[in-house]
């Protein structure tokens, strides 16, 4: 049986701009994924607990506050600590190109900056998540 990929779309940190997160959530839905949308201003602890309880394949983090170098690695680290390091973590938002290599070195699989076609992030997820039939 084919099962849908489960994705948590979350907004860590304090910025209140969720349009990007909503656009990507909708695009994932239309690509046949189950999208758990948790809303604004989440702490890494909240995101990680939600990811564990929902047993998602992917954690997609949208951030525009500038705190990405702190919050994104924190999510990856907490997932590992709690025994859920098997999840694919991706990020999106206004993230300077210079920060991307650091984030990748911290375990963020990919960063999608503004202007990335949604099809590109969908393709990335589909090719990196192995959903056992």
């Amino acid at each position: 049986m084919d099962r849908p990929i489960r994705v948590l779309v979350a907004k860590p940190g304090l910025d209140g701009h969720d349009r990007g997160a909503k656009v990507i959530a909708r695009a994932f839905r239309d690509a046949g994924m189950e999208v758990i949308y948790t809303g604004l201003r989440q702490t890494p602890e909240q995101i990680v607990e939600a990811a564990i309880q929902e047993d998602v394949d992917v954690v997609a983090l949208s951030i525009l506050s500038g705190a990405h170098n702190t919050l994104l690695p924190k999510v990856v680290q907490l997932l590992k600590e709690k025994g859920a390091g098997d999840k694919l973590v991706v990020g999106g938002g206004v993230i300077p190109p210079d920060d991307i290599p650091y984030l990748k070195s911290q375990g963020i699989a990919e960063i999608f900056t503004p202007g990335t076609p949604t099809s590109e992030s969908i393709e990335f997820i589909k090719s990196h998540v192995r959903v056992e039939a």
């Binding site: 849908p4 959530a25 909708r26 839905r29 239309d30 949308y37 702490t43």
Partner: peptide, 25 residues
Amino acid sequence: TGGAILGDRIRMQELFTDPNIFIRS
């Protein structure tokens, strides 16, 4: 498409880190 937006958690944020509570969408 078989896809879904599961949005009930938005109203349950205060429960995410409660060790007594487990939420599944």
